[in-house]
Amino acid sequence: MGALEGSLSFKTYYVEGEPPNDFHADYLSRIQRRFFQPLSPIGDEERSMGWVPVQDPLAVSAQRHDIFFNQYILLALRIDKWSIPSAWLKAIMRQALAERFPDKNIKISKRAKEEVRLQVVTDIKHKILPAMKTVDLVWNISERRLRFWSTSNALCEEFAEFFEETFGLRLTPDSPYMMAKNLGLSDADLNRMLSIEPWYPGLTHQDSM
């Protein structure tokens, strides 16, 4: 959350590259291609990630009016993950194995145990919902700036990669250098920044440049 309400802790990025002329149609179809796909209790996928509208994370598709607001693109990254408490899994496994193999003198093979585990996990997944997380982003197309409502380095890296896969545009996080570049500093000034050594307080006789 964050774009419409809640806390305001985000990471700011510069979006490299020009949006195409008909960016509404192009970006909407790109978003649809990577729209969130729900996890199924049957199957191996433990995690699913994709785009959803901020106002309706349960939506199955996005409409133009859900995403585009004048110069802004408003989206949420939804991440679902199966999260089965290990204590529950252990207890139900023990019960299922006892039912399937009542004779305690027979050694249960690894393969048989794995088959039971898969059945137990599938049964549990049918009874629970996956853990869901959504993280908002607001992309100002005209300023080529984007805010992603997370400060977790791991999640931010994953997001930047997914964004690039979706839109074919690279994101560069904010920094003193990027801010200077974005302020329109000349190449000469940007090069001067690179040649200046750090100035440490408390140390006298430092070079002026």
Binding site: L4, L8, S9, F10, T12, S175
Partner: peptide, 30 residues
Amino acid sequence: QTLTLTGLKIPAVMTKADDEKLYERQFLIE
């Protein structure tokens, strides 16, 4: 090191409708 702003508190947003709220919040952040 990053010049990012975290834990930002902005002036109170007055509007209620979602799209208006978005514009007002973004305006105050920007």
